[in-house]
Amino acid sequence: MAENRSPRMALIGVVAAAVAILVATGIAIAPRTAPVFHGTTYTEVAPAAQFSLVDHDGRQVSLDTYRGHPVLLFFGYTNCPDVCPTTLTKLTSAMKQAGGEAEDIRVLLITVDPANDTPATLKKYTGNFGPAVVGLTGDSAALAVARQGYGAYVEKVAAAAPAPAAHAEHGAHTGHASRPAGMTVHSGVVYGIDRRGNLQVVISDSATPEEVADDLRTLAGL
C-alpha cells in the first residue's frame, strides 16, 4: 500500500506546487487598482516632467532630488497677494490633517518671478509655512522648461484688465479677481507626484481642505 501511495502523493505535491506558482504569477502580473483621487487624474500615468533649478539654500536640484518623497508642485511667487499664500496654507493644513501618512511630503514652489525671488527671498517666504515647503528658482530658460513641462499658465499683466474666471488647462482658476498693472497672473493648480516620480493627480484650487487631505493620503500611499 505504501508503494502505491508514494507516486500518488508525489503527483499531488507537483500539482499543488504548480497551482501555487500559477496563483503567485497571476498576482504578480495582475494590474493594480487605479488610485482614487478627488483631483484630475490621467488615463495613463507617466513620469512627471524633469527640471533643473536651484533651491532656496542655493543647491542645484531636479525632480529626482526628491525621489522617495511624494511631491506637491506648483508655480507662484512670493509677492503673490492671494493664490500662493492661500494654496500653501491649504496644503500645509491638509498635510497636518492627513497625519503620519503625509509627513514626508515635499511642497515645491517654483517661482514665476525670478527677478525678485532670490533663494534668500524664497527661503524667508517658505519658512512661514514649515520645513516641508521648498522654494525653487533658476534662470529664465530653466524656469521656462519647467513651466512648459507642466503646461503651467502664467501671464505678466501690462495694464489693468478683468481676469478670466478660469483657464482651459485643467479647468484651473487663476484665483485673481482683477489684474492690476505689473501683476503676474498664474493658475492655482497643484501637481501631485508620487514617490517614483510619476505625475498622478492635478489638484484644483477649488478643492476643499478635506478633499486635499484625502488626495494627500492616497498619493502618500502609492
Rank of each mutant, 00 (worst) to 15 (best):
66 Y>Q: 09
172 A>C: 14
170 H>I: 13
38 H>E: 14
74 F>L: 09
215 D>H: 10
10 A>P: 00
153 Y>S: 02
97 Q>P: 03
7 P>M: 04
194 D>Y: 11
162 P>E: 08
110 I>Y: 00
197 G>Q: 05
182 G>W: 07
65 T>M: 05
212 V>W: 07
119 P>A: 01
132 A>I: 02
72 L>E: 14
136 L>A: 01
53 L>Q: 03
177 A>Q: 10
4 N>H: 07
121 T>H: 03
166 A>E: 15
75 F>N: 06
121 T>P: 01
193 I>G: 04
26 G>A: 08
87 T>L: 10
16 A>S: 11
46 A>V: 15
204 S>T: 08
37 F>I: 09
198 N>R: 11
153 Y>N: 01
44 E>Y: 11
98 A>Q: 06
145 V>D: 11
117 D>G: 01
31 P>S: 10
198 N>I: 03
73 L>T: 09
41 T>C: 12
153 Y>T: 04
69 H>K: 13
147 R>Q: 05
29 I>F: 12
18 A>G: 12
30 A>G: 12
50 Q>G: 15
143 L>Y: 01
201 V>C: 06
214 D>Q: 07
142 A>G: 04
195 R>M: 08
45 V>H: 07
191 Y>M: 10
164 P>E: 08
68 G>F: 14
68 G>D: 14
42 Y>E: 12
23 V>K: 03
82 D>Q: 05
194 D>H: 13
170 H>C: 11
155 E>Y: 06
81 P>H: 06
28 A>D: 11
209 P>E: 09
104 D>C: 04
145 V>L: 07
47 P>F: 11
98 A>L: 10
106 R>F: 02
57 D>N: 07
160 A>D: 10
8 R>M: 03
175 G>V: 06
32 R>T: 15
65 T>L: 04
144 A>N: 07
83 V>Q: 04
190 V>R: 05
112 V>Q: 00
39 G>Y: 11
206 S>M: 12
160 A>H: 08
140 S>F: 05
157 V>F: 00
182 G>Y: 10
